[in-house]
C-alpha cells in the first residue's frame, strides 16, 4: 500500500531497492509478450542471486534470469518461448543439471495461486490436475517446505467436496497462495502515481501485482493522471498497489508489446543459437546484457533499422508481414 503522489524512479534504483538477493520475485507477461525485459536485464546486470521466481507461462524473462545464474528456485507452469524455443533452453539445461529447483503446477493453478494471494486467502480450489503427477510428484521436498517459513507445508492438497456433491464436484485440489516480495510488470501506460493501463490481453498481471508486497511497473508511456481518469474503465491496477513507476521505451523488447511493437525474431533466433551453445552463451551475456549500461543502450546496439521493422501497425497492433522465420 503506497499512496505517494509521485513514484517515478529510474530502473537501476527501482531494482536496487526492491529486488534483493534471495527475494521472492514474480514477473508478468506470457512467453514472448510483455515480459518486463528491461527490468530483467537490469536484475542480471546487478548480479542479483538466489531469487525464488514465480511465473505462470513465462518464456524469455525466466530463461534469461536462469541463464545469468540469478535463480535458485522456480515455481512455474510453463517455460517456453513459442516457436523460438518450445522449451526454454537455459531453463532446460539448468533443470537437467540440477542447478535450479523447480515446482510444477498447471497454468490455472498458478493463476489461482496469485489470485489467492491477491485476495488474502491461504488457498483456492480447482478441479484441475486430479489424477495427474502434478498432484503426486513434488519438486521441493517436504523437509525443505517445513524448514522454510516462506514456503507452504504442502505443494497442494486434495480434499473431498465439503459441500458433498454440491456444484457437481466430488473432489477438489487446493492450491496455496503466492505472496511475492515484488512483482514486476511492463505495461503500455501508467501515471506518476502508479495507476496502470494494459492494452490487449492482461494475462495474470493484475493478480500477480495485487498478490505482491511491492510492485515495480515499467511503462511505454507516462501519461497524465487526468488522461487516465477520463476512461477509468480501461485501467486495471489502482495506484496504491504500485511502488515504483519507471518509463522505459520498448521495455518489453525483445518480447512484444501490443499496439507498440512486435517480438524481434532476429534477436530471439540469435538468442536461441547462443543459448544452445554453452561456449557462446557467456559471449551473448557480455555483448547484449553486461556490455550495455541500460536498456536504451541495448536498443542503440540493435539499431533503428531492426527496431523499425517490428513497430506495430496501428490497425492490428502488431508488425504486419514481419519476416518471422
Amino acid at each position: 500500500m503506497n499512496n505517494a503522489e509521485d513514484k517515478l524512479l529510474d530502473l537501476t534504483a527501482a531494482v536496487r531497492r526492491y529486488v534483493t538477493d534471495g527475494c521472492h520475485l514474480s514477473i508478468g507477461g506470457f512467453t514472448i509478450n510483455r515480459n518486463p525485459m528491461a527490468a530483467v536485464y537490469e536484475i542480471m546486470r546487478q548480479r542479483v542471486r538466489n531469487l525464488h521466481l514465480y511465473a505462470h507461462s513465462n518464456g524469455q524473462g525466466v530463461d534469461e534470469l536462469i541463464g545469468a545464474g540469478c535463480v535458485a528456485a522456480l515455481e512455474i507452469a510453463y517455460a517456453g518461448s513459442g516457436r523460438f524455443a518450445p522449451t526454454c533452453i537455459r531453463f532446460r539445461k539448468a533443470v537437467e543439471a540440477g542447478t535450479v529447483a523447480v515446482e510444477d503446477y498447471s497454468n490455472y493453478q498458478m493463476t489461482l495461486r496469485f489470485l489467492a494471494g491477491a485476495m488474502g486467502l491461504p488457498f483456492l480450489p480447482t478441479r484441475s490436475a486430479l489424477g495427474s503427477d502434478i498432484i503426486k510428484k513434488w519438486g521441493f521436498r517436504a523437509s525443505r517446505r517445513k524448514s522454510d517459513p516462506r514456503l507452504p507445508n504442502h505443494k497442494l492438497v486434495v480434499i473431498d467436496n465439503p459441500f458433498e456433491g454440491w456444484g457437481n464436484a466430488q473432489r477438489l485440489v487446493l492450491v496455496p497462495a503466492i505472496q511475492p516480495d515484488v512483482t514486476i510488470l511492463h505495461v503500455q501506460q501508467a501515471d506518476r502515481q502508479g495507476t496502470v493501463r494494459i492494452e490487449g490481453l492482461p494475462f495474470t498481471d493484475v493478480e500477480q501485482a495485487k498478490s505482491a508486497r511491492h510492485v515495480i511497473v515499467t511503462c511505454e508511456e507516462l501519461v497524465a493522471t487526468d488522461r487516465l481518469r477520463e476512461e477509468p474503465e480501461r485501467n486495471q491496477l489502482p495506484f496504491f498497489c504500485v511502488d515504483a513507476v519507471v518509463p522505459v521505451s520498448m521495455g518489453a523488447y525483445p518480447t512484444a508489446c501490443y499496439r507498440h511493437y512486435d517480438y524481434d525474431p532476429v534477436y530471439l533466433n540469435n538468442y536461441r543459437q547462443a543459448a544452445l551453445d554453452d561456449d557462446r552463451y557467456p559471449d551473448y551475456l557480455d555483448e547484449f546484457v553486461y556490455g550495455v549500461e541500460s536498456h536504451e543502450a541495448l536498443l542503440d546496439r540493435i539499431g533503428i533499422d531492426q527496431l523499425s521493422r517490428i513497430q506495430a501497425d496501428p490497425r492490428t497492433g502488431y508488425a504486419v508481414g514481419l519476416d518471422r522465420r
Binding site: 494475462f203 495474470t204 512486435d262 518471422r324
Partner: peptide, 26 residues
C-alpha cells in the same frame, strides 16, 4: 490474419470479442 507463433502472440489479441485474463479463460 497471420498465424501466431505463441498463444500470447499479439496476433491473438486483434479483432477479438473479448480480451480476457487467464483467470477468465480457464
Amino acid at each position: 490474419e497471420e498465424v501466431p507463433l505463441a498463444v500470447a502472440d499479439s496476433r491473438v489479441m486483434y479483432g477479438t470479442a473479448v480480451n480476457g485474463s487467464l483467470a477468465d479463460s480457464f
